[in-house]
């Protein structure tokens, strides 16, 4: 809470507009509380990294932003989550539309066992795009945006499972881009990749941040410092500190942040 207020005072000038506004968010798995009242704003067209040790709630937090946690039984949310100005936990809120506007990339690449083309075209199809030419256009544009087009343009009708791990993850990013989201959530998108593929994904994130608001969960602090504009440090279900990435890594305000980023725990 304190951290957020400071952030608002000192850094609001750089945050042009807020895409995600969270206030007093508490999250429960059954009786156990995983998030203890998180309050933060995520600025538009910036990369916000969520770091913290395993089990600190950063992934849970990420998944509240597109209501993926709804799929887990016996969970409960309290507090306010506004995405693109709407309270997404309001009764009757259109989940399909929310998830179209808030895309997600997962830790393990999860292409459908279909062709490369069908993987990308699936999202637009379920949102009502039928016209073949339009689909082809969307597929090419998404693959280009994900820096994968040149590698796959000659094998659009081959199975996506034949791609390498790094290519599969970029395919999943392209798939998320294909439904034209405004916010992209990434849950440790490079943690299962080799260094070269990781670099490719990181380059891609830097490319995408001009067009999209990105929230990325990462275990890797170097990665957070390389790709993000803002970093939020989570610890045991609390947001400890949020700040501009260089500031947070060079002069953290909180003792716990300092201990974590200097490797004293976690």
């Amino acid at each position: 809470m304190l951290a957020t207020m400071e952030y608002k005072e000192t850094e609001q000038a750089t945050a042009t507009s807020v895409k995600v506004h969270v206030e007093g968010l508490r999250f429960f798995y059954g009786a156990s509380e995983a998030l203890h009242g998180i309050t933060l704003d995520i600025p538009e067209k910036q990369v916000t990294a969520l770091i913290g040790p395993s089990g600190c709630g950063k992934s849970t937090f990420l998944r509240t932003l597109n209501r993926m946690n709804d799929l887990i039984e016996n969970t409960r949310v309290e507090g306010l989550v506004e995405v693109l100005g709407d309270n997404i936990y309001a009764p009757g809120y259109d989940l399909a539309e929310l998830r179209r506007r808030v895309g997600m990339v997962f830790q393990r690449s999860n292409p459908f066992p279909k062709t490369i083309f069908e993987n990308i075209a699936y999202g637009p199809r379920i949102h009502g795009v039928r016209d073949r030419a339009t689909l082809e256009e969307i597929v090419e544009k998404s693959l280009r945006n994900a820096a994968l087009w040149d590698e796959v343009k000659d094998r659009m009708n081959q199975s996506a499972l034949g791609l390498s791990g790094g290519q599969q993850q970029r395919l999943c990013i392209a798939r998320a881009l294909a439904v034209d989201p405004e916010v992209i959530l990434m849950d440790e998108p490079a943690s299962a990749l080799d260094p070269r593929s990781t670099a490719a994904v990181e380059d891609l994130i830097l490319e995408l941040r001009n067009q999209y608001t990105i929230v990325i969960v990462t275990h890797n602090m170097q990665q957070a410092s390389r790709v993000s504009d803002f970093t939020a440090f989570f610890y045991e279900g609390d947001l400890v500190e949020l700040g501009k990435t260089p500031n947070l890594f060079t002069c953290p305000r909180e003792k716990r942040t300092e201990d974590y980023i200097t490797g004293r725990f976690g």
Binding site: M68, N110, R175
Partner: peptide, 27 residues
């Protein structure tokens, strides 16, 4: 059927019926 595949479809805005029709049954 891997949870990751179902989540991939849900995350694109698929409804439960679409997830069953397009992911669960084909897989």
């Amino acid at each position: 059927v891997p949870v990751g595949l179902k989540e991939a479809a849900y995350a694109l805005g698929a409804t439960r019926l679409e997830v069953i029709k397009d992911v669960v049954l084909p897989v």
